[in-house]
Amino acid sequence: MIIGAMEAGGTKFICGVGNEEGEILDRISFKTETPDKTLQQAVDYFKDKGVQAIGIGSFGPINMDLSSPLYGHVTTTPKPGWGGFDFVGVMKQHFPVPIGFDTDVNAAALGEVQWGAAQGLDNCVYYTIGTGVGVGVYAEGRLIHGLVHPEGGHVLTRRHPEDRFEGLCPYHGDCLEGLAAGPAIEKRWGVKGTMLPTEHQAWEMEAYYLGQAIAGVILLLSPKRVILGGGVMHQKQLFPLIRREVRQALNGYVATPAILESLDTYIVPPSLGNNAGLCGALALGIKAIKGWA
């Protein structure tokens, strides 16, 4: 099979084609602009590829309710022109094939279950920490949507004792995304995170916030693995700091070997690396062909 895959990010779109083995055979990327301009580039890319399905992992919020007339729409995003856009509907006009649609981070979680760090597990949580903070949940063998879809980037956290930064989230100020996303790091310290040395206080503070959130999701969902991706997590020094914060926050309460003895293999980067999102979209396309719920 030839499957189309779209990783639809708020700043960049990545389109590719692959097969049912998770192999990406070709790809292209371009800037996210207005829906018309952006989707036309995607249509032009896929039109001669002979795709048998398309999977879309999209920035959000998005409407995931199959019974809703607004299924497949982007909803309340502040991204200019995208609020209310019928993403799936436009793609169906051009491609009469099965289309899988989910959040970009749910797609990444699915990709890691199919071919990556959560392979063989029926339960995991995937965080992406970059321009924003997103959370994808795969539980009991399926992606979780619920009322809308997980929005774990907007959970509230306790403030670090030395943090005076007000937060950047336009809705909540100092929620997890407002304090720990890439733009928050840059605003707080005056330079991009990539310019900060590995021993800078920024990373202790970042780990403090992410560790709280992960401890909370462990208590709430009891995932069998926690995967941390996104641009901020390219700072590999964060992993041991986050594991330490999680261990301290749980304080021995979740008394399982994964937490007490094996955090190095429990809180991990994505095995698929930068391909997690695109492979996840590929998995959504395969899922659409199979007619899974």
Rank of each mutant, 00 (worst) to 15 (best):
M1D: 07
I2G: 04
A5P: 14
M6C: 14
M6Q: 09
E7P: 12
A8W: 08
G10A: 15
G10Y: 08
K12Q: 11
F13I: 13
I14S: 02
G16L: 12
G22K: 06
E23K: 14
D26K: 13
D26M: 11
S29I: 00
K31P: 10
T32G: 15
T34A: 15
A42S: 14
D44Y: 01
F46A: 06
K49D: 12
V51A: 15
Q52T: 05
A53W: 04
I56S: 12
S58N: 02
G60W: 01
P61Q: 11
I62Q: 10
D65V: 10
G83F: 00
G83Y: 01
G89I: 08
G89N: 11
M91F: 15
Q93V: 00
P98D: 10
G100W: 08
A107S: 13
A107V: 02
A108Y: 08
L110I: 02
G111N: 05
V113C: 02
Q114M: 14
A118I: 09
L121H: 03
D122V: 00
C124S: 11
Y126T: 01
Y127P: 11
T128K: 02
G130F: 14
T131I: 08
G136P: 14
V137Q: 04
A139I: 01
A139G: 03
A139V: 01
E140S: 02
G141V: 06
H145S: 10
L147G: 09
V148G: 05
V148A: 11
H149P: 10
E151R: 00
L156W: 04
L156N: 07
R158E: 09
R159I: 01
P161T: 13
E162H: 06
E166K: 04
P170Q: 10
G173A: 08
L176M: 13
L176I: 13
G178H: 05
A181S: 15
P183R: 12
P183A: 13
A184G: 05
I185Q: 14
E186G: 04
E186I: 00
K187Q: 15
G190V: 09
G190N: 08
T194S: 15
L196C: 13
Q201K: 12
Q201V: 14
Y208L: 12
Y209V: 07
I214S: 12
G216K: 00
G216S: 00
I218S: 07
L219Y: 07
P223T: 04
K224T: 01
R225N: 04
R225T: 11
I227L: 03
L228H: 07
H234S: 07
L238W: 04
F239D: 08
I242A: 12
R243W: 01
R243E: 05
R244Q: 15
V246Q: 04
R247N: 09
R247Q: 13
Q248C: 01
A249M: 10
L250P: 06
T256I: 15
I259P: 11
L260E: 13
T265A: 12
T265W: 03
Y266H: 10
Y266K: 05
I267N: 07
P269A: 15
N275I: 00
G277W: 02
G285L: 03
A288E: 07
I289F: 09
K290M: 09
W292I: 04
W292K: 03
W292L: 10
